[in-house]
Amino acid sequence: MQKNITLNNGVVMPAIGLGVFQTPPDATTDAVQAALEIGYRHIDTAAAYANEREVGEGIRRAGVDRSEIFIETKVWISDFGYDQTLHAFDKSAGKLGVDQIDLFILHQALPGEFDKTIAAYLALEKLLADGRVRAIGVSNFMTDHLHALREQSAIVPAVNQIEVHPYFSQPDVRKTNAELGIVTQAWSPIGGITSYRGDSSKSTFTDPVILGIAGVHGKSAAQVMLRWQLQLGHSVIPKSVRRERIAENFDVFDFELTADQMAEIEALDTGVRGGPAPEAVTLEAFGREIPEA
């Protein structure tokens, strides 16, 4: 049975969602439809993924009532600024085919132009006050970004979506999230990003510790990592376009890791980030136009 997480404003969010990062538009609709048919009720996308329209189509094809589905999407840095971010909501909602977005978050901080980050977040607060979104949050915010945001805004983010997997567990940011009442949401929760480096011997999927724990429970490495995340209280958004993998990633509620197994996985942290360094994110390096339609 799906596990839910209650956010700091009382909104209930399914703990497991389907992520669609780097999922081609022509594969997104089928993946979303499959996930909803399997039992998922949380879909995570982003304006920068260029597949929001296909996410909306997958939701419609699945035939699940909109009230049962938790839709999350993100504002890209090119649309930061108060008015620009209000318009970014219109673009995303239009592509998704919805009037209300359940969780609307900032995709990155802009450390060198933090005033734009603040203005964008204040727009999220306006959207929340107007009922156009049910919860607001951030992504890839480090501890200093979170504290700076708190000093210049009224509402604590409900979620901070960050890279978290056994090889990069970010304990300091997770601690800050917990102290502020922010849910840690893990992207690349099973360490898929570790498989892109060309050295399979250093992939979480082939790690002997994880495989050993998987063997004890009769589960896959991916299922063990997802269970580890859930027992830490995290939200997870694993990605796949294969129906059998989507189903496997959802089948993690019938076993529990021991305290020793949790500690063994936590000890695998290498401190090596797979994604872009948050402090290096600039409009010059990462800016891209988000189309109107």
Rank of each mutant, 00 (worst) to 15 (best):
V32R: 00
A293Q: 15
N9A: 05
H42G: 05
F141I: 02
P276D: 11
G112C: 04
Y167T: 01
K175L: 13
A259G: 06
D99N: 15
A46W: 07
F253W: 14
K95V: 10
P278C: 12
D144A: 10
S235D: 13
P291S: 08
Q161A: 09
L86E: 11
I213Q: 04
S153I: 09
F21V: 03
L283H: 05
V173W: 02
W228Y: 14
L86M: 09
W187A: 00
S169N: 15
Q22G: 05
I213E: 07
A186T: 03
D99M: 10
V272I: 15
T282C: 02
I43V: 15
E52G: 03
N160S: 09
G192V: 06
P166N: 05
R41K: 07
F205N: 03
P278F: 12
H42R: 09
R227I: 05
V98Q: 12
S220F: 10
Q100C: 14
H145Y: 07
L226F: 13
Q100G: 10
G191W: 03
I105W: 01
G215D: 11
N249P: 02
R134H: 00
V138G: 00
A154E: 11
E37H: 08
R150S: 12
G39Y: 01
L7D: 03
V75S: 05
R288L: 13
H234G: 04
G275V: 04
I43C: 08
P291E: 06
Q223I: 01
A88H: 09
T85V: 02
K95M: 15
R60I: 10
L122K: 14
N177E: 03
G58D: 06
G274Y: 04
S153G: 11
F168L: 08
A88M: 08
S188R: 00
N160M: 03
R66Y: 02
D44K: 00
P157M: 00
P276A: 14
I193T: 11
A15F: 07
S92E: 06
I210V: 14
R243E: 14
R150I: 14
Y40D: 01
G275S: 11
G63Y: 10
A158M: 12
R197Y: 13
F141T: 01
V173D: 01
L18F: 04
R132E: 12
I213N: 07
T194E: 03
Y82I: 01
N160D: 14
A222S: 07
G81M: 07
P24R: 02
D99S: 15
P25I: 05
I69Y: 04
H165C: 03
A221C: 07
V252H: 03
S169G: 15
T204N: 04
P238M: 08
